[in-house]
Design a protein around this nucleic acid. Structure first.
Lengths: 119, 119
DNA sequence: TGCACATATGTACAAAATGTACATATATGT
DNA sequence: ACATATATGTACATTTTGTACATATGTGCA
């Protein structure tokens, strides 16, 4: 029996685009969760139809992975906000993702071609 | 409180490429699980490093969704094979996916642009 | 002053998807 | 008889995702 890889067949194939989009928005300018929502919408992600709590879970995951870091902003109008900014590790993650996305798009194109014209 | 969508924020964004690739391979010619593996490899998916049982789970899911249907092939060399072929519903699913993938690639391009040039 | 509403951030638990190890059976070559 | 390639699964643990609910502040207005 060959020694198989133990995990993550799916993770190779672009399941992380939402995570990346959030990280990109935070890179562009440090933001809090609620404002990330509208920035995503502008980027073309239909997130405003969903409950905002989804975003906070992604943000906590990103922080857990040390791709972003946060601090409370007490001052200002409205309730306190948690402001996220990207870390060097986060910047590197984005850079690598851009490279991988080129391969990924190639794969999608080959697949759509195969579907339409066959092998 | 606005009435939020209740699910599937992630499902909008290309998590299903492996499923689609398997379906495409079966559309191209009715196949059994083990041969789907090598066809996927040819298409550019590195699946041979993984345990084949993963594929059988996807195949059962596809059949559960009525995108494919199967029957045992007793004759021939080696152990019995379960041969899958695509259903009309499966064909329609592929057609819709090809359309969606165009939008999806546009989104990826806009995102990579945004990462590299900012907003 | 008290009530609705927009802003802002979460927790808790259920359900589904995925990871991982293991189980089974047939044909061929040595 | 035994190893190897072919072929198809099951069982259970872990992780991710779905879904409902909880909490707090400031603004406008009746």
């Amino acid at each position: 029996m060959p020694n198989y890889n133990k995990c993550c067949l799916w993770n190779q194939y672009g399941r992380d685009i939402l995570k990346v989009a959030i990280l990109a928005v935070i890179k562009n300018s440090p933001s809090h969760g609620y404002s990330v929502l509208s920035d995503l919408e502008e980027l073309g992600f239909s997130v405003s139809k969903y409950h905002p709590s989804i975003i906070y879970r992604v943000l906590r995951n990103l922080e857990h992975e040390a791709l972003v870091e946060s601090q409370w902003q007490i001052s200002g109008v409205g309730p306190a906000r948690r402001i996220y900014k990207i870390t060097p590790k986060g910047e590197e993650y984005l850079k690598q993702w851009v490279l991988k996305s080129k391969d990924y798009m190639g794969l999608i194109e080959r697949l759509t071609d195969f579907i339409q014209k066959g092998g």
